[in-house]
């Protein structure tokens, strides 16, 4: 990887380094998903029974929230490509807002489970449910931090139509967080 590669990472949007990170993260989640699926194959009844206790409405609502947030980030990238840093900032702020809604819904869900006495040691299904969603939860927080950093720089006029690698970098990471949830939701909440 040389400096020239930064601008020509095979065209990948944003900084090439974030993509190495994204691929590594996807690998971690992929391994986690398959571990869930194959453990389930050995414990079908336990998984099916435990899955009924999940709050599917909260899960679906969070999917909608994250998708919308991702869409807002797309708008933010479009805005900065049109050299409109102000609008870019507004879209980013909306995306962060949606990310925060996700966190609130998720915390409500966690609270519901914890008050029902469910923990990592309850059974294998809840171990996976809590581990996967908590691990993803941490990624949402990290994504929000990254978007916030991009927002601050956008506000101070750090990006333009000619130079907005940072916006694309943050956007790519955020879409990854969304992407992972798109698989997590049907896998853990829906199919049985």
């Amino acid at each position: 990887m040389t400096t020239s590669r930064k601008h020509d990472a095979g065209g990948l949007p944003g900084d090439f380094a974030i993509w190495i990170f994204i691929f590594a993260e996807l690998l971690v989640f992929g391994v986690f998903f398959l571990a869930y699926a194959f453990s389930r194959a050995n414990n079908v009844e336990l998984f099916n029974e435990s899955q009924l206790h999940l709050n599917r409405i909260a899960g679906a609502a969070n999917t909608v929230v994250l998708l919308t947030s991702s869409y807002f980030v797309v708008r933010a990238v479009a805005a900065i490509r049109a050299d409109n840093a102000r609008r870019c900032g507004h879209w980013l702020l909306s995306a962060i807002g949606m990310g925060s809604v996700f966190l609130v819904i998720k915390m409500f869900e966690f609270g519901e489970k914890f008050s029902a006495g469910i923990s990592l040691s309850t059974n294998t299904f809840f171990m996976f449910y809590l581990s996967l969603t908590f691990f993803h939860f941490m990624h949402v927080i990290l994504g929000i931090v990254i978007l916030a950093a991009v927002l601050l720089k956008a506000r101070s006029g750090g990006y333009s139509a000619a130079n907005h690698t940072g916006v694309e970098t943050g956007a790519s990471y955020w879409h990854m967080v969304d992407l992972v949830w798109l698989i997590l939701f049907p896998l853990v909440y829906v199919i049985h």
Binding site: V31, L120, S121, M127, F128, S131
Partner: peptide, 18 residues
Amino acid sequence: TPEYWQWWGSIFSALEPI
């Protein structure tokens, strides 16, 4: 330690070579 460490430990340490 609790059993979930078998999963957490396996999955994350399997990626330590990266």
